[in-house]
Amino acid sequence: MNLKRQAQPRALISLVPMIDVMLILLVFFMVTSTYLNLDMIPALRPDTDSVATTVSAQPEGSIMIRIGADGHAVLRGRQLGADAVTDHLTTEIAREPLIQVLILPSGAAPMQALISVMDSAALAGVQRLRVLRLEASQ
C-alpha cells in the first residue's frame, strides 16, 4: 500500500499590512515633528538668579548696559552695536574677569535686543550677568 504524505501548503506572511503600518507611522512622524534648530540661554539657574530681578545695590566692579525702547544698547552714554558691545565687554573682562554686567532693558524693547546683548556678554566671557527690571512702586 502506498501512503503518500499530503504536501503542506507553504506558510505565507503577507507583507502588505506591515507596509501599511510603516507608512502610517512614517506619515505620522513627518507631520508631527518640528525641525527647528533651537538652543537655550539660561534665564534663571537653580543656584543663581540672573534675569528679571528687581534693582538692588550694585556691587563694585559692575557695568550697566541699557536697552532703549528702540532696541539699541547704550553703554556709558554711547549707543553701540552688538559687535561693539562684545569688544567693549571683552576689554573690561580682560581688565577685571569677575566684573558684573547689569542689563537694564526698557519694557518696550523687543526680545531680540535683550538676547543680542546677553549673547554679546556670553561671547565676551562674562560670568556674572544680571537683567534688571524696574517695577512700579505700589
Partner: peptide
C-alpha cells in the same frame, strides 16, 4: 520670569535659535 521665580521655578531658560 519673575512670576515663575516667585512660584518656585528654579530653572527658567529662554529659547533662541
Amino acid at each position: 520670569v519673575t512670576q515663575a521665580e516667585q512660584l518656585g521655578v528654579r530653572d527658567v531658560v529662554l529659547v533662541v535659535t
